[in-house]
Design a protein around this nucleic acid. Sequence first.
DNA 1: CGTGAATCTTAACATCGCTCAGATTGGTGT
DNA 2: ACACCAATCTGAGCGATGTTAAGATTCACG
Lengths: 252, 252
Amino acid sequence: MAKGNHRNYHHGELRDALLDAAETLVHERGVEGWSLREASARVGVSPSAAYHHFASRDALVRALSERVLARLGERMSAAAGHEPERGSEPDSESDSEPDAEPDSDPQERLVAVGRSYVRWALEEPAVARLAFGAGATDPDTSISPHPHDVLDAELDRLVDAGCLGVSARPGAEFVVWAAVHGLATLLADGLVSLDGPQAVDREAERVVRAVLGGLTQETAVSPTWPTARSAHTERLAERRAGGSSARGGIGR
Amino acid sequence: MAKGNHRNYHHGELRDALLDAAETLVHERGVEGWSLREASARVGVSPSAAYHHFASRDALVRALSERVLARLGERMSAAAGHEPERGSEPDSESDSEPDAEPDSDPQERLVAVGRSYVRWALEEPAVARLAFGAGATDPDTSISPHPHDVLDAELDRLVDAGCLGVSARPGAEFVVWAAVHGLATLLADGLVSLDGPQAVDREAERVVRAVLGGLTQETAVSPTWPTARSAHTERLAERRAGGSSARGGIGR
DNA sequence: CGTGAATCTTAACATCGCTCAGATTGGTGT
DNA sequence: ACACCAATCTGAGCGATGTTAAGATTCACG
């Protein structure tokens, strides 16, 4: 309003402030019910100011998706038992996750991880939809504990404990990821309804246990499974190889 | 162009023409890369003409989602073996589905159904994303063979053949739906990549077999599973009960 | 205190979803 | 044949959006 309002200068923190505003807007209005202008106004800044921190509205959405996916990864990691590795201060948020006990049974750990995945999708459906639908993320930004990596580590732990045969291990992460992700998106998109968070927990457990039971049964011939690749790990590999984005066929 | 161009009057068929145009636009530009104005222009009609057939752009998207979901259901049904029940003419489209043989093994039928689900999501990722993300559909429009119902019928067939215990049957459709849907959306959203449609088929088969193996293993105590509800069947039930949309808490 | 880079603003453009008042069309009854 | 009516589409326009260009403001540092 006033011309000389020098409070509008967020030095270095405008980017995060915009991400915060966008995230609460997604909570309030859904994935598409908000505008760059509105997020800028909430931070007390002109619309064009955002373009000094994000190349486009889509870039804002992608950045938010990365931030949110990383938080999901931390949540899964915490649900597995050990504290999030890159844990900044515990955020003092409500510690109301009943998955508190650091479980030693790797099978129960996996169940807890899957449960936290779908519970998150149900608690913030709009954010989850945005996170999953934001397409390939920024090629030079990595997601701290990516959900895929958390599942990967838990499955390794399962074969170490002898709960899963080594022949079934390659690509098993994608099988349980698919199952958990499917339930999460079916709930977040409103295609399936469950009565209360308790029923959601039980359904998530059933899905994880079913797919896990099927994987341990995988003793028959079944030569080699197709090698799936997570867009996230693929991006990391490209970056390590010296990411001249010659091919760069992901973000398309 | 010319003022007296009486070709602009699509009597009764404008609605379908707009849906067609929107669908090809989704194919060309993705889920959000098109406008109502553009779809109207392709049909040779002014933008406001569309509002005599759809209450809003969102209604157009929802209607398209229904049409597309119904086609997915028909495709799944065809992949299971028997021809689509409400089969209009075979559309003379490429009959290149290798799932031609009407399989009698109910387990293989389920695998074929799941395979067709994720193959479809990979062949038209943008359309699939639109179909799944269009929120709750129109309360008074039913999807002819809904994907959920096809899975439901196949699972019934499995317990009839003795491949699945009756105790594991209730809600089992949602478990395999979650698994298949998860792989489909992970692929459509680009979070996971596979090399070629053959690898996609194999991965889909692995997911279905794993979740099915886990379900048949479900003999232990495990009291009653949570009762999940598909938004589609719920809508049908409401309509039968005399759908005074007093509660109508779905489409929100 | 002044200079330059970082940061934000003002103004504007093209496009979008959507509305409203009116023109055009095709059929129906007489 | 004509007049009328409902269905259908057009045209102009409103407010808002993403995005850009050019200019103002602020801060850190000499």
